[in-house]
């Protein structure tokens, strides 16, 4: 068990190294650099001077070594957009992204599992048909468009909730403890709702399939022969077994989840990592986008490591 953990940790480290390498070279291979934007006032000489200054004219491998060295020292570069070191900007943004994503993920799994189980136990009944159709619809919505529509609905046409930001930018500092908490929750509501609806759809489909696979198994019949109630059979015996593939799914969906978070953050002006990356586009904030890709990938690697731990906890068969 301990050896297994160590091996898995080593594997994660290797993946982090690979990810960093891939990201660096892929991004650098894009035509253009931070100074190649169109401008009438900047002469080629000035551009070359900048390139020289920031090291962009050196061979790629040399640039890579310089980059890795500075990353190892905790320096991720400077953000033109935020006017602060990238590390500082990311340190503020990552926890916000984690909060939003974590909440949405938790709720998605909770509702997705419940609905998926009910669909499987009432297979082809009206509940299964209706929820499957509705969820396939959500599954097909582009993240940003769904978020925009929810924003339109609940923040403009029927303005019950704030349109963006994590707290009320003006009033929050003057609020008492309870009031401040409510303010935070109200700002969380729309992004979390949108994100949950979108994420839940895939999880439900998966849970339904896993349950449909589990219910005809022999040990379910054994459970019936033991005289257990149907509820106990479904929610204890079948679900515990059918949760195993769900943990695998959790590991697989993390990259897409961060992608989704980006659009949700952009629409609801939620100042997390995604909004940072989206904002970097206009500013050509080169160091920032590179760091975001690597940070996002590292978050995925860490997340799948924990997903694997969870897998071990939930399935005794993979423990040895």
């Amino acid at each position: 068990m301990r050896r297994q953990l160590a091996a898995r940790l080593a594997q994660s480290l290797i993946v982090v190294i690979i990810v960093t390498t891939i990201s660096f070279f892929v991004i650098r291979s894009a035509p253009g650099d931070p100074f190649s934007y169109e401008s009438t006032t900047i002469t080629p000489a000035i551009r070359d001077h900048w390139r020289e200054q920031f090291g962009y004219n050196r061979p790629l491998p040399v640039q890579f070594i310089r980059y890795v060295t500075s990353v190892a020292h905790g320096e991720l570069g400077y953000s033109f957009q935020m006017h602060e070191p990238v590390a500082v900007a990311l340190a503020a943004a990552v926890p916000r992204t984690l909060l939003l994503t974590g909440l949405a993920l938790g709720l998605s799994f909770l509702f997705g599992i419940i609905i998926g189980v009910l669909q499987a136990t009432h297979r082809d009944g009206w509940f299964d048909r209706v929820t499957s159709a509705v969820l396939l619809f959500f599954y097909s919505l582009p993240d940003f468009w769904a978020a925009l529509m929810i924003l339109l609905l609940f923040a403009y046409w029927w303005p019950v909730l704030p349109a963006g930001n994590i707290v009320d930018p003006v009033m929050h500092d003057y609020m008492g403890g309870w009031e401040a908490l409510v303010d935070r929750l109200r700002h969380l509501a729309l992004p979390v709702l949108s994100f949950t609806l979108l994420t839940m759809a895939g999880i439900t489909r998966y849970q339904r399939a896993a349950m449909i696979e589990t219910l005809p198994m022999d040990f379910i019949r054994t459970a019936r022969a033991k005289g257990l109630s149907e509820r106990r059979i479904v929610w204890r015996h079948a679900l515990r077994t059918a949760l195993t593939p769900m943990v695998a799914l959790l590991g697989l969906m993390l990259p897409a989840l961060l992608g989704g978070a980006l659009f949700i953050e952009k629409v609801f002006a939620w100042p997390g990592m995604g909004l940072l990356a989206a904002g970097a586009v206009a500013a050509r904030d080169y160091d920032l986008v590179t760091a975001t890709v690597i940070a996002g990938s590292v978050m995925v690697v860490i997340g799948s490591f924990f997903a694997d731990l969870l897998h071990m906890a939930i399935d005794p068969r993979v423990r040895e």
Binding site: I27, P255, A277, A280, V289, V300
Partner: peptide, 13 residues
């Protein structure tokens, strides 16, 4: 492990 959207944005920036 690389979030596709983030990578695309980085390149397209």
């Amino acid at each position: 492990s690389i979030p596709r959207v983030l990578l695309l944005i980085a390149i397209l920036t």
